[in-house]
Design a protein around this nucleic acid. Structure first.
Length: 254
DNA sequence: ATGGCAAAGTAGCTTTGA
């Protein structure tokens, strides 16, 4: 048996928070780290992070988006394309026989926005991709910034908006779950209220007005071995924090 | 009071985030 731990963190600029990522990698408890919102082109990624002993695959982009997956042993890229456009929001890698699907789901902005339609289309494509992937693989982890409030307890009580929890968005995430994926945090913590994102404005973090919109989904095969899931608020306490914090899930693999 | 902040690109502002 061996413990296998994966983490996901929307870092809101890899340039600004390189040192925080380095400190995290040096703690050496993660086997996989999926990053979102690099806001960096591939050439400017701080590849010296490899000095920590992690390999990295980057799907970057100028100014916006950008994802990267780091691993403490051999990692190979399967694809970085979900929709044929120029938004770097997707990176699929293999780590031995485990498939890691790193996602930065589009924001959607408002229900009448073109970006909302793009978000729904993107999630539909993700569903179809995972359905296809399942034909040949049983050990799959889908993790990242989903920009979806899965259940009402995943939003602070005063949150009164439909955005991120509209029926169409919930339908998209539920259809993905129905493929046979488990929300690892909710599997471990049935009724617990914790968030992974807090607005920079309005003292949202000290007031704990947040949302749980970052998720680690595990396929049935892997979820049988799930032993822990955590939200690490220490990174939101940093003096120059991302607005999201690190989430992790641990498995005791045979 | 969804707003107040933060980051990037760029050079006084706009766009984006959620």
């Amino acid at each position: 048996m061996s413990i296998f731990t994966v983490g996901s963190w929307n870092i809101n600029s890899i340039k600004v928070r390189t040192e925080q990522v380095k400190d995290l990698l040096r703690e050496n408890f993660l086997d996989i780290l999926a990053l979102q919102e690099l806001k960096s082109i591939n050439e400017n990624f701080p590849y010296y992070l490899r000095q920590t002993g992690y390999e990295v695959i980057v799907n970057g982009q100028k100014q916006y988006n950008g994802v990267a997956t780091l691993a403490n042993s051999s990692i190979k890229e399967l694809t970085n394309t979900l929709i044929d456009d120029n938004q770097a929001r997707f990176l699929v890698t293999t780590h031995d026989d485990i498939i890691i699907v790193n996602v930065y789901v589009p924001n959607g902005q408002s229900l009448d926005s073109d970006k909302y339609q793009y978000k729904l289309q993107w999630l539909s494509k993700l569903h179809d991709f995972l359905q296809e992937l399942q034909k040949n693989h049983s050990k799959i982890i889908v993790l990242g910034d989903f920009n979806i409030i899965k259940e009402d307890l995943d939003a602070y009580p005063e949150y009164s908006y439909e955005m991120f929890r509209s029926p169409k968005e919930r339908n998209c995430i539920n259809k993905i779950i129905e493929l046979g994926f488990v929300d690892t945090y909710r599997q471990i913590h049935k009724d617990k209220i914790e968030y992974s994102w807090w607005d920079y404005r309005s003292f949202s973090y000290p007031k704990n007005k947040g949302l749980r919109i970052d998720l680690i989904l595990a396929s049935q095969e892997l979820s049988k071995h799930l032993i822990d899931a955590k939200i690490h608020t220490k990174y939101r306490n940093h003096s120059q924090p991302s607005d999201h914090t690190l989430i992790t899930a641990s498995f005791n693999l045979p």
